[in-house]
Design a binder for these strands. Structure first.
Lengths: 157, 157
DNA sequence: TTGTATGCAAAAGGTTTGCAATGAT
DNA sequence: ATCATTGCAAACCTTTTGCATACAA
């Protein structure tokens, strides 16, 4: 675990050096929070978590640091349907399942989805870089919520 | 053209009746704006367009009406990486190309992408409904912008 | 020492809510 | 007549900006 944290931070350090940017305490903490989460947190959620260890940390810095991460290529903004931007520490090709009720996002691993053949981007004037598959559905928690609600309704009658 | 507008509006009217909701002037105008656009506009862009014909229309109403459309199933919120929610009048399976520079979104038609085999949702506790493919890349306009910038840089030297 | 990052305060979007008046069926 | 919708104003949440100070290299 400790070893894993160390190697994860190294990714950030290398990226900062490559970009000629200083490795600050804030960047380290924020990256550490992000890289240990798989729930595609918003800037505010990251701020809440990082403040536990860095109480002086300002929201502004979180926004700026996340922006830097995206530019450095150590994080991505994930497509989402809500009003707050979400971030993902994974930059390789992978896929997402999104709950239609609670809007939570879960990573989907699938070698099949990784090797889809895209149409020719030139047809719509695009240069295609990469893609991901977004699956909509109902997550486990919301399925439970739904059946609880249904059995409650049945009892009422 | 006129015939197309009429039949498009019928989709909304049917949906409202099915949901037991009144068909208001505002809902008609907003639907008319949305259904004739393919650029996945934000609520504000829709407001700007609809106000041309309905000057009293308030922003609040646009937000509420779009929400109703999504609940009625005549529009969807499209996944996006920016700070403003975007809407799409298409509810059938289709795919999107998104520009990494300007964040514009263009529809991608492809029978191949329409028949991807998804992994088993149960593996991550999900009930999968549907999916779409999100392609990232550089749009035609941003490609031109880029080459213009490059030739300008060359002249400077 | 130098250039960049940070924190604060304030502003600028974007979205939601309460309430009285209006409109659709 | 009835119930839902609309517009307004205000609140709320998210993100950005300007500026003086602090920090990493």
């Amino acid at each position: 675990m400790a070893a894993k944290t160390t190697s994860a931070i190294r990714v950030l350090e290398d990226a900062c050096r490559a970009g000629g940017l200083p490795v600050t305490t804030q960047r380290r903490e924020i990256y550490d929070v992000l890289v240990h989460r798989t729930d595609h947190p918003t800037a505010d959620q990251i701020w809440d978590a990082a403040r536990q260890r860095l109480p002086e940390l300002s929201r502004t810095t979180v926004y700026r640091v996340l922006d830097t991460f995206v530019k450095l290529g150590v994080a991505t903004r994930t497509p989402n349907v809500g009003a707050a931007v979400r971030f993902d520490p994974r930059t390789e090709r992978h896929h997402h399942a999104m709950c239609r009720e609670c809007e939570c996002v879960i990573d989907v691993e699938s070698p099949n989805l990784d090797r889809i053949r895209l149409p020719d981007g030139a047809l719509i004037g695009f240069e295609f870089d990469d893609y991901s598959v977004h699956i909509r559905g109902l997550c486990a928690a919301c399925q439970r919520r739904r059946s609880r609600r249904e059995s409650a309704t049945r009892k009422e009658r």
